[in-house]
């Protein structure tokens, strides 16, 4: 009798606990959904605001409401009439060239450090770690003066900026080296046994396998110049023809211009963001792989 009771009680207790768990799980999920929805709103709102304000015609200045009272394309038309075209073209050229050259340099560097064991290897890696701790801002002054001596500043800022961006890009080899490290070395060795040279191993065996990391490197290299602000501002030095979008549009928000240009800034932001964001979203998968791998490798 006693035993039966305990068994029954145990069963009921378990059943109750199970139902309790289920209920608490539903509550937990509901809370999570609420948090996620609130977060999504917070994360998306600023971008919705930018888009809405870029269509506002009644005032070019900041106002206390979001939905325009008069819709129109005035801001985009003004944008077309301004120097924005030039800046956009500058940035696009820089981004394109940098994406190609930086990818080549980073791949050379990371592949070598992943596959070859040579005398200075660890010294080299340690040295680059140390160099990376110097604030890059520090070197701007001299690079600016050198570029100026070469005539690559102000109106000619574009080639100057490209040169500086790609020159030091070898330092950012960590993520792709981490990727190459995960490709088994036995592949290389097998190809070498079959008589392939090291160069052939790279071009015939490794590169086809490295598609994700190549796309990741191209993507980050392409996106970098769109956001670079400090050095670009230094090099263009107030000359509109040499500015990139970040520098040019930053000036629109200065106190003396913001009154007339605020909505134009929003329109410009939309025009800059759309292609970059679309590209990014398409290649998102590779970006996520790279970021995750990079953090794990440290």
């Amino acid at each position: 009798m006693n035993n039966e009771n305990t068994v029954m009680e145990n069963g009921q207790v378990r059943l109750k606990r199970h139902m309790g768990l289920k209920a608490s799980n539903t509550i937990a999920n509901t809370i999570i959904y609420i948090i996620l929805i609130v977060m999504s709103v917070i994360w998306l709102l600023p971008f919705v605001f930018i888009v809405l304000q870029s269509f506002r015609c009644e005032s070019t200045w900041q106002v206390g409401y979001v939905v325009p009272q008069q819709w129109g394309l005035d801001n985009y038309i003004n944008l077309w009439k301004s120097d924005f075209k030039k800046w956009y073209l500058n940035t696009f050229i820089i981004a394109l060239v940098v994406a190609v050259l930086q990818t080549i340099i980073v791949l050379c560097m990371s592949y070598t450090l992943s596959r070859f064991r040579f005398k200075m290897r660890s010294t080299l890696m340690r040295l680059m770690l140390i160099l990376g701790m110097f604030p890059g801002m520090l070197t701007m002054i001299i690079l600016y003066r050198v570029l100026k001596d070469l005539g690559l500043t102000q109106a000619n800022a574009v080639p100057g900026l490209i040169l500086v961006y790609i020159a030091s890009s070898g330092m950012g080899y960590y993520v792709s080296k981490g990727f190459f490290d995960t490709i088994p070395k036995s592949l290389d060795e097998a190809a070498r046994v079959d008589g392939a040279t090291r160069a052939q191993v790279l071009t015939k065996i490794i590169l086809p396998l490295a598609k994700p990391i190549v796309i990741y490197t191209v993507l980050t290299a392409f996106m970098g110049p769109w956001g670079d602000f400090v050095f670009a501002r230094y090099v263009s030095f107030g000359t509109s023809a040499g500015m990139n979008v970040a520098v040019g549009m930053y000036n629109w928000l200065n106190l003396d211009q913001i009154g007339a240009r605020y909505t134009m800034f929003c329109a410009g932001g939309v025009i800059v963001a759309i292609p970059v964001a679309v590209l990014f979203m398409c290649l998102q998968k590779y970006y996520v792989e790279g970021v995750t791998g990079g953090a794990v490798k440290g």
Binding site: W43, L44, W226, G227, A246
Partner: peptide, 9 residues
């Protein structure tokens, strides 16, 4: 999406 849009904007 926040990552996709250039930070300066």
């Amino acid at each position: 999406l926040t990552i996709a849009i250039p930070q300066f904007i």
